[in-house]
């Protein structure tokens, strides 16, 4: 357990509110071609927190083919409020999620536009305020705007989850400089949520110092989701280790790795 040992708080497992998450890779459960592939990808990812969506049950298709039957029982559920466009919808969905999951976690999404799926930060703040008063552990999806992240943190959100690029776009970390500013001022975990396309994107996010990465499409949409899940696990671990190692500064000119002294024929 590379993240669960040591006395340095940076080395410990991630804490979000009262919850402890051992893996810094959080994965979504959507878009898989079948439950078996999803379960195998979950296992390969090493994740112990997964996002789920809240929807009306299909009354014509009840039975054991239920998502929850395919998730390990020790998996922490992070229900989302995906596809909510108003404060009322998001709050109502979060309350239903709490009743169904018997947990207090919510990935708060209040979407502002259905083409970009960018969040409406203003409505997200309003919904977060209501949910925080009701005792939820709130992880809001927001833009990579340092001011919004600070406002969400100031009202008591338990993490901030800035997007790196639009949901499902695979464009990677588009604004590492904003993420750095967000990280500098953060007093709660910063989790990059959305935009990761491949393993190097996840590693970049972690090298910047992000506390975790949340992804769905990058794994579920890969030709071999199970293999990509493993790649993402390794990338998140590698990026975290690199961040904690303290990388060398970037320089314009070379610095020799081999000593000058003792060369032959000089």
């Amino acid at each position: 357990m590379p993240f669960d040992s040591g006395t340095n708080p940076n080395e410990r497992a991630l804490r979000v509110g009262a919850h402890t998450i051992n893996s810094r890779l959080i994965v979504g459960t959507g878009k898989y071609k079948d439950f078996r592939t999803m379960r195998d990808a979950m296992e390969a990812s090493g994740a112990d927190m997964v996002t789920v969506a809240v929807r009306r049950i299909d009354l014509s298709a009840q039975g054991d083919e239920n998502l929850l039957n395919w998730l390990p029982s020790n998996m922490t559920l992070l229900p989302n409020t995906a596809a909510c466009f108003t404060v009322d919808e998001a709050v109502r969905t979060a309350r239903l999620a709490r009743e169904a999951s018997m947990g207090d976690l919510v990935k708060l999404e209040v979407i502002g536009d259905d083409q970009t799926l960018f969040p409406d930060n203003q409505l997200t703040l309003q919904a977060a305020e209501i949910l925080l008063k009701e005792g939820f552990t709130v992880l809001p999806y927001c833009t990579d705007d340092p001011i919004v992240c600070r406002q969400l943190q100031d009202i008591g959100c338990h993490a901030v989850m800035p997007l790196a690029a639009p949901i499902g776009s695979g464009l990677g970390i588009r604004n590492p400089y904003n993420l750095r500013i967000i990280l500098e001022q953060a007093t709660v975990p910063v989790i990059v949520d959305a935009g990761v396309g491949t393993a190097s994107d996840a590693a970049v996010a972690m090298e910047l110092g992000c506390d975790a990465v949340l992804m769905n499409t990058a794994i579920a949409g890969a030709d071999d989701p199970v293999r990509m899940a493993r790649a993402m696990r390794l990338a998140v671990e590698a990026g975290r280790e690199a961040y904690l190692s303290g990388r060398i500064p970037m320089k314009l000119y070379a610095t020799a790795s081999s000593p000058i002294e003792g060369r032959i024929g000089v």
Partner: peptide, 10 residues
């Protein structure tokens, strides 16, 4: 009446 549960999502 609304009856909801969890499905796959990100």
């Amino acid at each position: 009446i609304e009856i909801v549960s969890f499905i796959g999502g990100g």
